[in-house]
Design a protein around this nucleic acid. Structure first.
Lengths: 152, 152
DNA sequence: CCTGCATGTTGGCCTGACCAACGTTGACTA
DNA sequence: TAGTCAACGTTGGTCAGGCCAACATGCAGG
């Protein structure tokens, strides 16, 4: 059995790298997401989630919270504003800033995306039981926390 | 203390997603790698590692082992062949195929890359102790294995 | 006042993942 | 034997993400 040795494994030098594993897991997630959602949905979800949790934010703050460049935030907001899922207006207290807020349509879109996103997590983690999922999540969280901006 | 609350955390909806964590971890790895290595070094490393571990391979086999498209393998090999780190010639037994082998220069390049790669892993995993690193590695391996081509 | 910094915008670059088409070659079958 | 089908490698292209550079605006400091 396993006649032709389905293995076809990647080389050990790669399997040993967490950075490589992370990269592969990341594109797996991207693929699964792409099967369910239109293009750009990932960025939309991130921005909408930030607005929902933190209320009104400036574009720069959004970028900082999500780890995105100002440039890219700008693009996402253009899309969202075009769909009236987000409201963008100059901050009277600081006219450099734009105050971005969630609209009702935006909130609804967020919940839609959340459902698909949950389904994607389930597919991605299908091979792990509940305890393992929790462990993986915690370890990744710890890893990411250790690379935060480092507040001196 | 923590007066201005350095937090600036991403929203919970994102923190809860393993796919998002994987994506962030992946770009972290990419960033750390970019600090030490020239562009394209990641793909080079993967291809060289496959050749070192499995000997002579066809381009299609390389792609299958690494999860790369034939197209992209072609490009990487052009680069490597241009530097004489790899030898590419038609397979006499099957003239559709190219037999790709590692040269001495390629082997040497691989070891160089390995050193930098190891250093990157250390930086990436700096926040985790040995046991946690091992756990994370195992869980990611299990996750990836569960998404293999599925040999029926 | 003026220097410096933050903000948002535009435009561009590069990587990685992917798809489509083509000519070549081998294998399988009618 | 001929004809069909599949695999291989190549070229050329798309798309999202992450990044950098430059610019105009506005704020805050000396």
């Amino acid at each position: 059995m396993t006649d032709t040795d389905d293995a076809l494994q990647p080389p050990a030098r790669l399997r040993g790298l967490v950075s490589w594993q992370a990269s592969k897991a990341s594109t797996l997630g991207a693929r699964l997401t792409a099967r369910r959602l239109p293009l750009g949905a990932r960025a939309d979800f991130a921005v909408l989630a930030a607005l929902e949790e933190y209320g009104a934010l400036s574009q720069a703050d959004i970028g900082r919270r999500l780890g995105l460049d100002r440039n890219d935030v700008s693009g996402v907001l253009n899309r969202l504003e075009g769909r009236h899922q987000v409201d963008r207006q100059a901050d009277p207290a600081n006219r450099r800033r734009n105050v971005v807020t969630l609209t009702a349509a935006g909130r609804q879109h967020l919940e839609e995306l959340q459902q698909h996103t949950d389904a994607v997590q389930d597919e991605l983690l299908a091979g792990l039981d509940a305890a393992e999922r929790q462990q993986l999540h915690s370890l990744l969280a710890k890893l990411l926390d250790s690379h935060k901006p480092q507040p001196a």
